[in-house]
Amino acid sequence: MSQQTIEQTTTEAGDSPAAGMEVRNLSAYYGNFLAVKDVSMPIERGKVTALIGPSGCGKSTFIRCLNRLHELNRGARVTGQALLEDQDIYASNVDPVQVRRVIGMVFQKPNPFPMMSIYDNVVAGIKLNNARKSRSELDEIVERSLQGAALWDEVKDKLDHSGASLSGGQQQRLCIARTIAVEPEVVLMDEPCSALDPIATFKIEELIAELKERYTIALVTHNMQQAARVSDYTAFLLSGEERYGRLVEYGPTEQIFTRPQEAETEAYITGKFG
C-alpha cells in the first residue's frame, strides 16, 4: 500500500465511531519480574496503532494488558490505568470478562476452535453473551462477520466444516471474523501475520485497513514494513540493559519512520539493531 493511501484512509477514518483508549503509567509484572514499565500512550479511535520493537521488548505483554489477558498468567499483575474512553478497564468495579467482550484479540498463531464448525467458530462469542438468538439472526451475523473478515466467498459453501480444515491465512481470517462477530470496540492484534505466507499476510493487511473503518485497532508487529504500510500511529518499545520494556517513542507513523525524535528509534528503524 502506498504512502498516499495511508494518508487517505487516515483522514477518512477520522470520524470513526469506535471507542479509543488511553494508557496511563501502565506497568506489567510476571511475579516480581517487571516486564513492561510505565507506558503512557493513546490508542486513537478508528485508527491503527502499531507497536514495534525488537523481540523481548514487552510489546506482546503490553498489548495483552489492554484486554486484561495478561493477568491470566500465574503470578502476573498490572499497575496503572488503561482507559476505554473515560472508563478505566482496571477499575475495581470492572469485570475483566466484560472487558474482553468489548476489546477483542487476534493472536500470533491462528487459534480457531478445532472441534467446532466454521459457523460455530464465528458465533462462539455471540452464544456466550446472548443465548437466545434465532437461527436467522445467527445466520446473518455469520455472513456479516465472514464478509467483514473477507472470508465469506471462500467458505460460504462449507460452513459446517471444521475450523481446523482451513489454510493458515483462512484460519486467521476466521479468528478475525470470530472477534468482530461480537462487535467489539477495539481489536488487538498480536503479530497476526507472523505464522502466514506473504499472500495471506497481504490479505490480512488489506483487511486491517478495512477494519479500522469500524474498529480501533492495536497491532503488534516485528515487521517494520508492515507497521509502515498499515498503521496510522506507531509506538516503539525497547528493553535495554534494564531488561524491562519501556516506551521509547510514540507518534504518527510517518513521523516515526521519517523523522524519529529519539536516537534509539532511529537506530532501530534503520536496522542498526534488533
Binding site: 489477558l69 491470566l72 468489548v102 493472536f107 487459534n111 476452535f113 467446532m116 461480537v182
Partner: peptide, 24 residues
C-alpha cells in the same frame, strides 16, 4: 492459545473450559 481465544471473546472461566478446553 485455545483458552486465550475463548477468553478474548468475553467468556467466563467456566465458559472457556466448557467451550474450548473440554472439547479440545
Amino acid at each position: 492459545t485455545q483458552r486465550e481465544g475463548m477468553h478474548s471473546l468475553g467468556a467466563t472461566k467456566w465458559e472457556v473450559i466448557r467451550g474450548a478446553v473440554l472439547p479440545y
